[in-house]
Design a protein around this nucleic acid. Sequence first.
DNA 1: AAAAAATGCGCATTCGGTTGCGCAAAATTC
DNA 2: GAATTTTGCGCAACCGAATGCGCATTTTTT
Lengths: 345, 345
Amino acid sequence: MNQTLPTIKEMAIRLKVSTSTVSRALSNHPRIGLKTRMEVQKLAKEIGYEANAKAIFFKEKRSNIIGVIVPQIREEFFSEAISGIESIAVEKDYTILFAQSFDDPEREEKVVDSMRKQRVDGLIISLSKQTTKFSHFHKLDKLNIPVVYFDRVPSFSNAHKVYCDLYTGTIKMIQWLFKKGYRRIGLINGPSNLAASKERLKGYIDGIVKQHLKVDMQLVEETDFSKETTCRAMHKLLNQKHPPTAIISFNDYVHMDAVQFAISNNIKVNRDIAFVSYANLPITGHIAYPPLISIEQYPFAQGSKAIEVLISLIQNQAQIADTDFVSIEVSPDLKETPVVSSPYY
Amino acid sequence: MNQTLPTIKEMAIRLKVSTSTVSRALSNHPRIGLKTRMEVQKLAKEIGYEANAKAIFFKEKRSNIIGVIVPQIREEFFSEAISGIESIAVEKDYTILFAQSFDDPEREEKVVDSMRKQRVDGLIISLSKQTTKFSHFHKLDKLNIPVVYFDRVPSFSNAHKVYCDLYTGTIKMIQWLFKKGYRRIGLINGPSNLAASKERLKGYIDGIVKQHLKVDMQLVEETDFSKETTCRAMHKLLNQKHPPTAIISFNDYVHMDAVQFAISNNIKVNRDIAFVSYANLPITGHIAYPPLISIEQYPFAQGSKAIEVLISLIQNQAQIADTDFVSIEVSPDLKETPVVSSPYY
DNA sequence: AAAAAATGCGCATTCGGTTGCGCAAAATTC
DNA sequence: GAATTTTGCGCAACCGAATGCGCATTTTTT
């Protein structure tokens, strides 16, 4: 067990030169003679010298570490996004410090604090559902730690953001349905207090209006994401005088529950009623009745974009005025469900 | 923009004491008088002083950072595992440095190296499918960085491991099927070169033998995880003189593809043929035909266990002999698919 | 009242590198 | 051959905190 690691000091002693010479020789400083340089580098290789990154980071006041906080990694959207973030990070020699808020503002504050204490070079975060306080983020400003919000972004404008515009996506979706001949379009939305639900509803209403259809709030139901309330919503939608001929589900999970309910009510999925959804998860490639189309939100791309923005912020920190805020809207697309290979365990 | 952060030096000057006094006052050293202590702590609060963790980590030679490497975060098994790791980490004031190998040994080596350079306090890793070289891990030993392998663990014994014994799980599953009256049990296995496939096959054979049934290799097919080969495997299984009455799929994704194929061949799922699987993913709670039972591998628990072992290794580093290796087998269970709420995007 | 112990604080070193500056020797110029 | 430039290297400061040791005071003990 090699308790003491090789340092430049040791090498300096062994080679009877100063530590500064060793340091410069290792970084190929032209002022160090070729002979000395070679000797130093040879010895370094021999004893397996490796600079202590902690010492350097300490002196240089950077760590090459980027913090990433998402509500829950088990949500496929976020695991894809992190995958995108991580793959760019490795490319650019950054590492990812990872944490989850579990949609709890208190935990979010705690993990943001711990990232601050670790002095990450920058932070990428998708906010918890309930975040209303931003004081823990302001503390980052004092340390000059740039923040890029993604997907669940704050509403104020003085922040760097990368997100997907579901409002427009919803309008596109309704346009698509209209073109296919669907006129009574239902929506199983999420809880009305969520921003994501409001966005969808706004897009839904404006989309309906845009096609010169009548907005009928009988066609809008809510789910709290449990199978029960989704089924209840389906029940209400199906048992009206004029039931919908197309149903938009809040996400692919809700879609699956809705489809199951439809089947058990002898409805021919995508024939009697068309089902469409948001998200476009890999799993939908394996289910019997995937949505006809999904709104693809490109989590991997959003993640990649977010870290690219962040790295440029980090590297140009000095030149950036407080008033330049990056705001990137990833345009959602309508996508049919692709066939995918299953992951391997 | 507060370019210069408060340091003990500044506080020392302002209070006309030495930095050592400030340092000790902040940590409530008894040798510092109560009055001085209070003054220092008051000023610290006022100017929002916070010790520079980098300086401390540098001096103390630890970072409170634990590295975690998995093949792919988008595999639900691993995202659950990391969730388990992260939740314990936050509790114990560690943070998680995260990376993926994407099942590429070269990338694995690269990310292990970057974790080493970052001087993580310890490493948790699930190996890539193809890892055969371990030199990058040996380099960690020199730095006294303990490693805990989980799920995909190496075969040599001198390593700390946490994993799930699928061999036993498979035997249990066959016993369960036998008790339910199934006698012709098929297996859609993964590629035969994978350790995970070998383990399942061994369990399958021994399980069949244990029930005094005859091993019939006609009942064992392979998939490369694409829908096509899974369907081909199903086709072969169904078109024999005596087709299986129960089918074990390699994982829930393969299960879904297999079930889809069965349905399109007018087979009543779980009536004509019983379907069982490994993994027990949250998504199976949303599909129409979940496996009758799944082998639950407790990824969250495995992750939690792994980090607990690692933290104890880190904290008792001095006392631990090189010969004490922890090896924890998480016992797999047979589980019916639970109904779950959908995650929210 | 002298000796011993407790109190309160500062000096200087350490962690492992990087870097500005200076100085001597060698090489070049005029 | 003197002046200038280039080459090669070392000294010492610095990053921000922790800490062993020592030195005065003050307090307690005998």
